[in-house]
Simulated scan of single mutants.
Amino acid sequence: MNTLSDLTLTSSGRDMSGWTKIRMTRGLERMVSDFDIEMTDGYSAFQHGLMIKPGDPCEIRLGGQLVITGYIDRVIPSIAAHRHAIRVTGRSKCEDLVDCGIDLLGSQISSASVLDVARLLSKPYGVTVNAADDSAKTTILRQQNVLFGETVFDVIERNCRFAGLLAYDRPDGSLLLSRVSDKNVGALDAQHVEQGWYEWSMDQRYSEYRAMAQSMSVLSDLGDGGGLIFKIPDPGVPRKRIHYIVAESNELSPLPDGSSIIQRRALWEAKRRLARSHILSLRVDTWLAPDGNLWEPNTQISVDPLALSGLKLEILKRPSNGWTIGEVTYLRDVDRGTTAILTLSLPDAYNVQPFNPYAQWADIQPGVPL
């Protein structure tokens, strides 16, 4: 693997390189991707400071590969006796979906797919929305009321949970709706690993998850369903630890497969907490994955066991080809040179919480199909 050599910021038709301090982060669960770069060379920093303005559109490339398309948020020039520097921070185009309210005539959307709603709400801010999974197109929202004060991403994220999807930004500034991917970008050779951290935890896991209907839920405690508890054990927890999940009224009705949202929530809770009890972080000496492209969130890598030999033996029991990249941070500074920090876990760590957007009386209205 070749180490990428430089970062280029393109803004106002100009390419600016020579940045001496770099930090860019992209992730599955962070909206949005962001960057923080600095230049300390006197003349170049002064010249770039005259060219860059907050709010300007920009593109960030590493060795020619696009990483972020977005906007400059802040420009911070500084001066000292023998130093002239400029620091620039910014985020992906999707920042407007996270920061801004909904620009929509009326407050109701009817008979639209999750993808249609995302595109409708994102269009005023110039953000393209794509889907990597058909459920974004086939999951139909019969009726949706959007609330003043909600951001665009508040609505998109909630709808994506209904369809079982993640929503995160891409290097071209677009928003992608996707499930956890099984795309494997190759095996990480031990020689590229400079440092590793393995977080093996138990404090967020429970021996039993109990999903319970509210006993005082109006019109939901009729019949034989009121107060029913679904129990899901985690045999890996060494002592008794009980966790209750109390259902909302719209989570109790049966779904087409015979389950309910509250059952799915309980199973999701157990699997997610188990997966997140095994977090592997690696500092590697390259911005490039084994396939020659930049490290990407929502891809999987295999890890050479030699790279883990100094960590706890428990990590060697995890599947070597099943590590999902949840977050990647590209770094450069004068002390460590070019590195990247990868945050890895098992795929279940990134599955989204099941959600039913329809408020209903559980024992009067039949289940809402997914």
Rank of each mutant, 00 (worst) to 15 (best):
H243C: 10
Y244R: 13
I245N: 11
V246P: 01
V246K: 03
A247K: 01
E248M: 09
E248Q: 04
S249L: 15
L252D: 00
P254Y: 11
P254N: 14
L255E: 14
P256F: 03
P256Y: 04
G258L: 03
I261S: 00
I262S: 08
I262H: 10
Q263D: 14
R264S: 06
A266D: 00
A266I: 01
L267E: 06
W268C: 00
K271V: 13
R272G: 11
R272D: 15
R273Q: 04
R273P: 00
L274M: 13
L274N: 09
S277W: 02
H278V: 06
H278A: 09
I279E: 03
I279S: 03
L280Y: 02
L280V: 10
L282S: 01
L282K: 03
L282C: 13
R283E: 11
D285Y: 07
D285T: 09
D285A: 10
T286Y: 01
T286G: 10
T286N: 01
T286A: 08
A289L: 01
P290Y: 14
P290Q: 14
D291P: 07
G292N: 08
G292V: 12
N293Q: 12
P297S: 03
T299S: 15
Q300C: 06
Q300N: 04
I301D: 02
S302F: 07
V303H: 01
D304C: 02
D304S: 07
P305E: 09
L306H: 10
A307W: 11
A307I: 02
L308H: 03
G310Y: 00
G310W: 00
L311A: 04
L313Y: 15
L313G: 06
E314D: 15
I315V: 14
R318K: 06
R318Q: 13
R318Y: 15
R318M: 07
P319A: 05
S320M: 15
W323F: 08
W323S: 07
T324S: 13
T324C: 05
I325Y: 01
I325N: 04
I325L: 04
G326K: 00
G326Y: 06
E327N: 08
E327D: 08
V328P: 11
V328C: 03
T329I: 13
Y330A: 02
L331Y: 14
V334T: 14
V334R: 12
R336C: 12
G337N: 02
T339A: 07
A340Y: 12
T343F: 04
T343I: 08
T343S: 13
L344M: 10
S345R: 02
L346F: 08
P347S: 13
D348K: 09
D348G: 05
A349Q: 14
A349H: 04
Y350M: 13
N351L: 04
V352C: 02
Q353Y: 07
Q353F: 05
P354Y: 09
F355V: 00
N356A: 07
N356M: 05
P357A: 04
P357C: 06
Y358A: 03
A359P: 00
Q360V: 09
W361I: 15
W361F: 09
A362H: 00
A362C: 06
A362Y: 02
Q365K: 10
Q365T: 04
